[in-house]
Design a protein around this nucleic acid. Structure first.
Length: 471
RNA sequence: GCGCCCUUCGUCUAUCGGUUAGGACGCCAGGUUUUCAUCCUGGAAAGAGGAGUUCGAUUCUCCUAGGGCGUACCA
């Protein structure tokens, strides 16, 4: 029988949830779900100087928003410190580790000369073979006595076989001179204690994995399976950073992307299921496998994200979508949408969403009924309403007063009006748009009128007539 | 410097030795149209370079080039 699958996401709480971190979390989650396993969360807070509560909260919130839910309570690495130290002691006793009294200056000097000579910069501590008893009064670190013959092999679930000659791997520090455990030790011990079966993390950890395997071996522990994800780069191919635009999940949330769009897009960056571009998380779980993850780094392409987002916006159930938008505008935009507006929203959601990639854009497109009069026309557009137009709008008003107020009837009224006036549709549509929504573009004008209602429409037109006549 | 990883259209990717190298985003052209969009149709666009293995390489191997990661008492 196979061991149960346990994966984990192990962020260090030194900032927001990075988009790359989110993808790592997503793949861990997807894999665990697809194997009916567990997905755990561990906060790597061993660096007490850089770790903050705010960052921890931000990461939790980010994952929650994405719907990447973890099993059990999050584990804080710091609270396992004693356990880590205990393991280091055991290693020391077994002779698999040793105390090194070299100073940082000595090590730096060694590395400098090694670089000059073009040889390996891996520090060979003289204390490795020094069997003399403890040197009292001198600070020491505990280093792993790693093998210097043979090789270390990872059968990576994504990359295949990767190997290192052991003499290219260093005697890594397990315990700092102040006695605190390093990341290298802590991850291994925690992953072992948490019974993590698959370590899925970024490619940047590939060498670390080899070094960490040495610790597993020294302890005689089972080595988990590894899968190293190719990294996400910016649009220019360089490392993804703030200068490429938004890199935190929270920023994407604020911009109004639905969580499913982010997940769909991120999953598609590196992973594929044939030609399928759009999918739900249930489908992704069903189809997911590590073998289908590619080897090469991907670039983050916001245009593609937009199209994925547009797809999901247009697929969502209208009522759910409206609910989400109302929540979004309240929390992210501090804009309260009234009962009345929300019922208009429900009626117009289809025409709004087909031209939008984000909640934010939907709201922008809905501004014609979200805005309170008076309607402001951009100064640069004011010249587009002429005195001739105003006369025409007055004649139109008369007809609008009498018509049955449905989109079909309004459509018909407008086309008859155009014929009667012997003008193009645009001649009437443009000033009418400007008058009632203050902009040159909008969804279909008859629909807009229908949704706005007769009273509101006539009020807005009459306001516009007053304003523009004065000028 | 040393170690390791990566390399198919502009971008994300499919292909598990034999294909006119497929799809999506974007782009271009045309159509629908009521503005902005949407939508529909069509188009341009790729195996980094060089050896080898093979009847046959995008696919397997090696070399080169380019890019990335690591090389901390950070994680």
């Amino acid at each position: 029988m196979n061991n149960p699958v346990v994966t984990r996401f192990a962020p260090s709480p030194t900032g927001f949830l990075h988009i790359g971190g989110a993808r790592t979390a997503l793949f861990n989650w997807l894999y665990a779900k697809s194997k009916n396993g567990k997905f755990l969360l561990r906060v790597e807070d061993t660096d007490s100087v850089r770790s903050t509560k705010e960052a921890t909260d931000a990461i939790f919130k980010g994952l929650e928003w994405l719907g990447i839910n973890w099993d059990g309570d999050p584990i804080f690495q710091k609270s396992n410190e004693m356990r880590h130290q205990d393991i280091a002691e055991q290693l020391l006793k077994k002779g698999m580790a040793y105390r090194c009294y070299a100073t940082q200056e000595e090590i730096m000097k060694f590395q400098q000369t090694a670089k000059q000579n073009g040889t390996s910069t891996i520090y060979k501590s003289p204390w490795r073979e020094n069997t003399s008893k403890l040197v009292k009064g001198l600070k020491s670190v505990v280093r792993l006595r790693s093998p210097n013959i043979g090789e270390t092999v990872i059968t990576d679930q994504i990359k295949g076989r990767v190997s290192w000659k052991n003499d290219t791997l260093d005697d890594l520090v397990l315990l700092r001179s102040d006695g605190t455990p390093t990341y290298m030790l802590a991850v291994v011990v925690d992953d072992h204690d948490m019974r993590v079966s698959h370590i899925i993390r970024g490619d940047d950890h590939l060498t670390n994995s080899a070094r960490q395997i040495l610790i597993y071996k020294a302890m005689g522990w089972n080595v988990p399976k590894f899968a190293h994800l190719p990294l996400i780069n910016g649009e220019d191919g360089s490392k993804l950073s703030k200068r490429h635009g938004a890199v935190s999940v929270t920023e994407y949330k604020k911009m109004g992307y639905p969580a499913i769009a982010i997940k769909n897009y991120l999953a598609r960056l590196g992973w594929s299921h044939g030609d399928t571009e759009y999918f739900t998380m249930d489908e992704a779980i069903k189809w997911f496998s590590l073998e289908k993850i590619g080897q090469s780094p991907a670039r983050f392409d916001k245009k593609k994200l937009d199209s994925v987002s547009k797809f999901h916006l247009n697929k969502a159930s209208p009522n759910d979508l409206v609910e989400e938008i109302i929540a979004f505008s309240l929390h992210q935009r501090n804009l309260i949408i009234s009962e009345k507006q929300s019922s208009i929203f429900k009626k117009s959601i289809n025409m709004l969403r087909e031209r939008s990639s984000t909640f934010h854009e939907i709201i922008e497109n809905a501004r014609f009924f979200l805005l309170k009069p008076p309607i402001i026309v951009e100064p640069t557009d004011r010249a587009l309403i002429t005195q001739v137009d105003l006369k025409m709008l007055e004649r139109l008003t008369l007809e609008l007063t009498a018509v049955r107020w449905t989109d079909v009837a309004l459509e018909k009224l407008l086309s008859n009006f155009v014929k009667k006036e012997q003008i193009t549709f645009q001649t009437v549509a443009r000033p009418l748009r400007l008058a009632i929504i203050g902009r040159k573009s909008s969804p279909s004008i008859a629909l807009v009128l229908a949704i706005l209602g007769r009273k509101e429409t006539l009020n807005r037109i009459s306001d516009a007539l007053k304003t523009f006549k004065r000028n």
